[in-house]
């Protein structure tokens, strides 16, 4: 079954204003259960609007949003349950920490769902483990943590609600390479071990290439393509035409072909490129 399905979704901000243009224009996508999907697109392409559709923060003007095959707006009064089902980690979530300790902050979401006692404790601990947070960090005030640690506390807070779908908006922006690996590696472990469907929005083509099974490309309020990662990045010219890019290593592969060494164009990690080149010797 599809974890996420959008059928002909259209949405316009301030649609009664003169000159309003749709932010989502007849968008249809299907995301299978259990994988990590990337969502890329230029600024203003409609990514954030799409993300806010998935947990019911925005309601489509027309079209349907289905999670696990269920129309989330079938019973508008139950939209709060949808928000527990689709966990959203916003940009720079570390600014939203507020509790006295990291553990308390992580517990906030699941407590609101009515969990308490041992179950709550278990959820907090498990979420902290996925996010790579040690026992010692859990007892600290969020103010005493580094930027990368705070970001992982915010991630754990959403994981602790055991969402069916985890949506992350620019989870690694502003982090150093190690911080990026920590957080994205944690997300990948969580997805693989729990079977949770993950959607990552990012401008980093390198990160997308490293962590996503498939990639949705948005441009001008529409879906340009939704294909396996290798195939998306092999279409460099189409991506460039909508203001996107491919990883540097993918451009090396294209230039290698021009120089008579053809390792294919579906190259998006350095290890794969090195293996292909060494395999030719």
């Amino acid at each position: 079954m599809n974890a996420i399905e959008l059928k002909n979704v259209t949405f316009t901000y301030g649609k009664h204003m003169p000159g309003a243009v749709p932010a989502l224009d007849d968008v249809s996508i299907q995301v299978k259960s259990g994988g990590i999907t990337g969502l890329i697109g230029h600024t203003g392409s409609g990514k954030s609007t799409l993300v806010q559709m998935l947990n019911g923060l925005l309601k489509p003007d027309s079209g349907t949003v289905l999670l696990d095959g269920i129309d989330i707006w079938a019973e508008p009064k139950k939209i709060r349950e949808v928000r527990f089902k689709a966990g959203l980690v916003m940009q720079y979530p570390e600014y939203q920490l507020f509790a006295e300790t990291a553990a308390e902050d992580i517990a906030f979401g699941p407590r609101n769902m009515g969990l308490e006692g041992e179950e709550l404790d278990r959820r907090v601990r498990e979420a902290a483990r996925f996010a790579g947070l040690s026992e010692e960090i859990l007892g600290k005030s969020p103010f005493d943590l580094s930027g990368g640690q705070k970001r992982r506390v915010a991630l754990a807070g959403v994981i602790a609600m055991s969402p069916k779908i985890l949506i992350l908006d620019e989870p690694a922006a502003g982090l150093d390479p190690e911080g990026r690996r920590d957080i994205l590696g944690g997300v990948k472990r969580f997805s693989r071990e729990s079977g949770t469907t993950v959607l990552i929005v990012s401008h980093s083509m390198e990160d997308m290439a490293m962590y996503c099974d498939d990639v949705i490309v948005m441009a001008h309020a529409k879906i340009l393509m939704h294909r396996p990662t290798a195939e998306v990045f092999s279409r460099a010219e189409e991506l460039a035409a909508v203001g996107l890019d491919v990883p540097l290593i993918t451009r090396v592969a294209a230039a290698l072909r021009k120089n008579g060494v053809d390792i294919g164009l579906d190259v998006y990690t350095v290890d794969y490129a090195a293996d292909k080149i060494l395999g030719m010797l």
Binding site: E206, I249, V252, V270, A274, L278
Partner: peptide, 20 residues
């Protein structure tokens, strides 16, 4: 130091280890 190098450098490093 927890940092990275450009992907072109990383590729060259891996190829050099195999004698290229």
């Amino acid at each position: 130091a927890g940092l990275d190098v450009p992907q072109t450098t990383e590729l060259a490093y891996k190829l050099r280890q195999k004698g290229l």
